[in-house]
Simulated scan of single mutants.
Amino acid sequence: MKNLIVLRGGGDIASGIAHRLVRSGFPVIILETDQPTMVRRTVSFAQGIYDGEMMVEGITGKKVNTTKEALQIMDKSTIPLLIDPKAECISDLRPTVVVDAILAKKNIGTTIDMAPIVIGVGPGFYVGKDVHAVIETKRGHDLGRVLLQGQAIADTGIPGNIGGYTIERVLRAPKKGIFYAIKKIGDQVQKGEAVAKIDGEIVYASISGVLRGLLQNGILVSSGFKIGDIDPRAEVKHCYTISDKARSIGGGVLEALLYLKNR
């Protein structure tokens, strides 16, 4: 298929990228694991791996079982979701573009020879070695910038500042165990209120605000694993729309592929 884009990852940032690419006329296939661990599930196409399909701002991600099925359902309003964490389908699909938006903070298998254009999102990719371009993901002056040499800013481990909060707005597992939510995405919570539990141990809200993200129930998590996100701006509608960060990074990916395609 002409101008086919294979997007590795279906979390909220990857979904913002996919949404912008599809709106711009590019056919996109998303590759995911069989158990995605994104917390912003209400704006992540990867939620369709659990539910069969997932709509984000008018575009639907639909789970498929084969590349043949993916090519059959792909159109301007539907993105196929294929379980293929190792991107083994690339040899069959022969895409024009591969975008790695797994956001693992390191390269876990993307190579520069996967397609004529290969783009890495965030840290872990070196231009000319791993990919043809990198998109900066760190909040601030360079967010969404297309890098044609070097690499993105290394991960600091500190979440971006939203409403004056950084690490405080992220909920993490207190121990290894199975995650279950007490609240749901979109709920208003107060600091100290029970939000979730890990094998019976309660996780409490670290600040007051709106629950913008929570893991899928039943996932086994390790101690310290990100399980949720509280937005102190308390705008419920933000839970159901693509973020400013995802839109900016999506614009960077679109710019990078057009630049490289036309060069």
Rank of each mutant, 00 (worst) to 15 (best):
G48H: 09
V64Y: 06
M74R: 14
P80M: 08
E57A: 13
G109I: 07
P80Q: 05
I73W: 05
G109K: 14
E69P: 00
I73V: 13
Q72I: 11
E53A: 09
G109C: 09
D113R: 12
V121N: 04
V118R: 03
C89V: 15
E53G: 03
T66N: 08
E88V: 05
K68M: 09
N65H: 10
I49S: 07
V118K: 03
V98S: 04
V121L: 05
P116I: 09
I83V: 15
E69L: 03
G61T: 11
T67P: 07
T60L: 13
D75T: 02
D113V: 08
A70N: 09
T78C: 12
K63R: 15
Y50I: 04
P95C: 07
K86W: 08
K68Q: 13
I112A: 06
K63T: 04
L81E: 02
T67R: 06
T60W: 12
K62D: 08
I112C: 03
K105V: 03
S91W: 11
P123A: 08
A115M: 05
K86M: 11
P123Q: 11
M74N: 12
Q72F: 11
A46T: 01
I83G: 01
E53H: 13
I119V: 15
V121T: 02
Y126P: 01
V97G: 01
P123T: 11
T66D: 04
F45K: 02
I117S: 04
M74D: 00
D84G: 02
G122R: 01
V97L: 03
V64C: 05
G124W: 05
E53V: 00
M114R: 06
A104M: 10
E53N: 14
I49W: 01
E88D: 07
T60D: 02
K76D: 15
A115P: 13
P95F: 00
L71T: 13
P123I: 05
E57G: 03
K63H: 01
D75C: 10
A87L: 03
C89I: 15
P95K: 08
I83E: 14
P123Y: 10
I108R: 14
T78K: 15
D75H: 14
E88Y: 04
V99F: 06
G109S: 11
K76R: 13
I49K: 06
Q47W: 07
I119W: 03
I49T: 05
E57I: 04
S44H: 08
M74C: 10
K76S: 15
E88T: 09
K106E: 15
T78I: 13
G48E: 10
S77K: 14
N65T: 10
P80K: 04
P95I: 08
N65I: 01
A46Q: 06
A70C: 13
Q72V: 09
K62F: 07
T111A: 12
V118C: 07
G52H: 12
M54I: 00
A70K: 12
M55H: 07
G120H: 11
K105F: 00
P116A: 09
G48D: 10
I49G: 00
V56I: 11
P116K: 05
T111Y: 07
K105E: 07
M74L: 13
I102Y: 05
L93W: 08
L103C: 01
K63F: 06
T78G: 07
T66R: 09
I90P: 08
T66K: 12
Y50Q: 06
G61Q: 07
M55E: 15
F45R: 03
D75G: 10
R94V: 13
K106P: 01
V97T: 14
M55I: 02
P123G: 08
D100G: 11
